[in-house]
Amino acid sequence: MERNARDDLQGLIFATLNLRYLRGLTIVPFGIWMALFPLLGHMTRWSQLGAGAGLLIATVLAVISTRRLNRHYDERYGRVEANHRRGFPGAGFGVWGAVFIVLTVQGVHGVPAVALWLAALFFGIYMSSSGYRWYYLVLAAVFAGLTPWWVGIGDWQAPLLGLAFALAGVMDHLLLRRLLPVHGESEAAPSVA
């Protein structure tokens, strides 16, 4: 009983500290946008619509969807004002993003393999440090495993990253739902007498 109560309180603190980052569905449109990126690039081949116009429409749709999802989270879970600026997840995404920019610009051969592995390890451990977001460790391991073939997969780079973002977003959302379950208003709430 005591252990459960403590676990619940730890979950509450985690959800409070990370609410902004647990609103995972907001990242899904961006992930889909990335996943569709190569498709948009080839759009001129099968449509009168130029690639630029397709990209613009997809970007606008992603932004609108993200804004709506943000509003949905506001209305469903309320908002929390953080009391301090946390490095999370900026540091994790920052390191990982920098690695992929270097990879894109220089190619995988321009980056020492050990740097890629360390970046993946840092990202995975950093994002899953609380124990609640273990799936970031799995995603990081998958990408670390993929790095030797990163150049070879060519057009699949952006879709893979996009799908990983979308998957992480869905997992974050499911975690939020588990930590802060939403019951019907008519459902009996615990007594506080």
């Binding site: 509450l12 603190i13 409070t16 500290l17 879970y77 615990p190 506080v192």
Partner: peptide
Amino acid sequence: PARLAILTVLSGCKSAEFLFLQRATQLT
């Protein structure tokens, strides 16, 4: 328990909206 949950949530942030407190504490 209810007051402890409220205080715990608020200890993790500068401020929280009523709705968030309701979701977090599962109170009516």
